[in-house]
Design a protein around this nucleic acid. Structure first.
Ligand SMILES: [Mn+2]
Ligand SMILES: [Mn+2]
Ligand SMILES: [Zn+2]
Ligand SMILES: [Zn+2]
Lengths: 141, 141
DNA sequence: TATTAATTTATAATTATTATAACTATGGAA
DNA sequence: TTCCATAGTTATAATAATTATAAATTAATA
């Protein structure tokens, strides 16, 4: 709680009740949540929360570099709250978005082909480990 | 024209008038168009074209592997009609989506960390070469 | 030709996101 | 304390991409 407030303050974000709770949800969830998932979680603790606040807060967080926005799913924005940059796998079977720790050779590159690079997003699509082993178990059965 | 028909047939897509024209537009445009851009172009030649047809056609094309879907812009899907896979830069200044020919070390990898990989999308965000040089010219002025 | 299937179109519905304005809490000046 | 400015939140409406549905058209087939 105190930690969350400090994190917000370190990014010059006024630590309101709503913002603290949103950050807490992001911390407690390994997933890459969308606005609705966060909203549903929030409702349990702040029944009066507005979805607009979730949108506003997340866009503030993104501006200040507290979260990263993922466009890996075409439907809606996903939010990532992990410090160091990494790539992602979207499992087409279970729909999960999974961190992939492959070292990107361009991670520290600031310039490619004359273009200035400020951000890198690596998206993989396929079938996750768990779905694969589940499939295998199904076949045996 | 004949070429376009052959391309469609090779992918088992019936070469209707609409589909041929959509493929033609994709061929003649270096950009990574969205549905509306394609629709606007089509209107010049087929004034009765329906936007639903554009959606249907592009999703057929994507299924058959004739185009690739890019989610680099959060707002809407972009379509890429270039044979060999490559990465992309979104210029935050001019909004263009530019092909980036960096060799991805995972290009031929079928498996990472136990997950099966079927597709890779590399998105860079920053400022394109042209906008950078334009900026520089502005400063001098 | 008559019938069937494939494709296209018009239209409505859905859904994520943004815009707008009203409301509320907060922290200082008077 | 009271007044006021501001930031933050909420309710509500608007926007825009996409999908769903069913009718209309075209092409294929018997
Ligand atoms: Mn992640
Ligand atoms: Mn491209
Ligand atoms: Zn999975
Ligand atoms: Zn540019």
């Amino acid at each position: 709680m105190e930690d969350l407030i400090k994190i917000l303050q370190s990014k010059n974000i006024h630590p309101s009740h709503q913002r603290i709770k949103i950050l807490e949800i992001l911390e407690n969830n390994e997933d890459h949540m969308n606005v609705n998932m966060i909203y549903e979680e929030l409702l349990k603790e702040i029944p009066t929360i507005s979805k607009t606040t979730v949108y506003n807060t997340l866009s503030t967080f993104a501006e200040k570099g507290l979260v990263h926005c993922l466009t890996i799913t075409p439907e809606e924005m996903r939010y990532d709250y992990r410090a160091k940059p990494h790539h992602h796998l979207l499992c087409t079977q279970c729909g999960r978005i999974i961190d992939v720790d492959v070292q990107c050779p361009y991670a520290d590159v600031m310039e490619i082909d004359g273009h200035r690079i400020e951000e890198i997003q690596g998206y993989f699509k396929g079938t996750c480990r768990e779905c694969l082993s589940h499939d295998k178990a199904q076949i045996i059965k």
